[in-house]
Amino acid sequence: MHNLGFALEGAWKVLAASLILGAGLPALFALGIRSLAWGAGGDAEVHETGVTGPRPRPIGNVVGWILFAVVVLGVLLGITFIVASGFGKALSFEHIFPTIVDK
């Protein structure tokens, strides 16, 4: 069953890549939302009843939007990948930084 070997070999790579992109990016996105809520203060986060929520914290907004930017970059990378493979190119991660190369 040589095919099983090839498939398992591919499977763990897909799993690793997907965990980073498919679960990692949503986690960052969630952190971004958490950060925005923390930044907004008031009733955005659960706090003791009967007390006014904390004051707005601008730094939370900044961190939140930086996190969203990272997620958007990740998505753009995904789109670049689709388009590049359509034109017979491939994304190479050889130099860590993604570059478009011929297949």
Partner: peptide, 22 residues
Amino acid sequence: PQGMAAESASAAVILASSHLGF
């Protein structure tokens, strides 16, 4: 939140596997 997790996972798995010829 589940919807986003599910679609992100789908997108990542589809893209990663076509990249690896799977």
